[in-house]
Amino acid sequence: MGKYILKRVGYMVLTMFIIATATFFLMKLMPGSPYANQAKMTTEQINIMNHQYGLDKPAYQQYWIYLVGLLHGDFGTSFQFNNQPVSYLIASRIGPSMQIGVQAIILGTLLGILLGAIAAIRKNTWVDTVATFFAIIGRSIPNFVFAVLLQFFLAFKLRIFPIALWEGFSSSILPTIALAMAPLATTARFMRTEMVDVLNSDYIELARAKGNTPWQTVAKHALRNSLIPVVTIIGPMAVDLMVGSMVVENIFSIPGIGDQFVKSITTNDYPTIMGLTLLYSFMLVVVILIVDILYGLIDPRIRLSGSEGSN
């Protein structure tokens, strides 16, 4: 296991290096000016600015400086937003994003597991139909549409929740629900398929033959066996969450990194875009690694075979 993890971490570093390089050179190719009011600036002023940001150096030197900076946690300086260091910008904004992200993934997976399990246990009944219908809705309606609908009815019409401000837990509820829809639908659907499979298996029949009640059978045997593969979809769900957070934070005016990313795009703030791209990729790579390790730990068939079992 240790050797396997080490190997995976190695690949992770390589992946991050390739991503950093690709992002850097892509940014070099980007059209548009980094300076919002370039039209009004003199050539001299532009030169001064370029020098200040190190943009007058040859590309390979900029690349080197950039890489060295990354190792020190320095993502460069934002062209916009009062010329703050990108790392500072990210640090000050990651809290709200993490909060709604974590809340959404907990809410989504727990409800999804529940919904999927019930649908599988009551397969081909109205309960199953209703659960499947909700899963389809959750998967089909784009989260920003859902977010706007929630905002309109619960915040604007019924005034149960604040419309768009970031103050305390109550303001995180609607964005959490909007973000949780996609993971909920994905988990419910996946869980149902797995559980139906497991419930048809011979060892479930043996569990019944031992004298377990239907609920004991589910609790002791079916649930654990269907939950193990569910771990594997956490990775894709994390991606959905990152994507979703960009619009949801925007709609609910949450000062998070998703909102920052959208703003940086519209202002051509390349250092911030680069920093956030790396951050998103890093988070994703880490999540995938953790999921793989977790999967190996909870499934005895992989844990005990020792070598690399998951892929």
Binding site: L26, M30, P31, G32, I265, I273, T277, Y280
Partner: peptide
């Protein structure tokens, strides 16, 4: 594939869109 898929595809799409008109 592993490397490409470890960048959130949305980020790739956005970077591409910044590059092209």
């Amino acid at each position: 594939i592993e490397i490409i898929s470890s960048i959130p595809n949305l980020v790739v799409v956005i970077l591409m869109l910044l590059l092209f008109t």
